[in-house]
């Protein structure tokens, strides 16, 4: 994974009582997130960090959402072309 650690803007929906990112704005470019492949939660102190792996075009984006601060971060990217 190529580590990024940058704040991003995300448009998300709630589906089946589950937050789901659908659109990402990063470095002035818009990315349509086609599929969330996995999701899990970790904690940093009191903060709950929601980890999403989302596919857009041929890249896997690792997104983090801090539910305490409502901030979204792009943790890293992984190209899917093997």
């Amino acid at each position: 994974m190529t580590e990024i650690h940058e704040p991003v803007q995300i448009a998300s929906t709630f589906r089946q009582r589950q937050l789901q990112p659908v659109l990402m704005l990063w470095r002035n470019r818009q990315y349509q997130l086609d599929e969330v492949t996995s999701y899990h939660i970790t904690r940093i102190g009191d903060d709950r960090i929601h980890h999403f792996a989302a596919l857009a075009e041929a890249t896997l984006y690792h997104l983090l959402f801090n539910s305490q601060t409502f901030e979204w971060w792009l943790d890293g990217i992984e190209p899917q072309a093997a």
Partner: peptide
């Protein structure tokens, strides 16, 4: 299998 679920590029490899 969790890693394969997270990253589709790993599936079947």
């Amino acid at each position: 299998s969790v890693e394969e679920q997270t990253n589709p590029a790993l599936r079947g490899k």
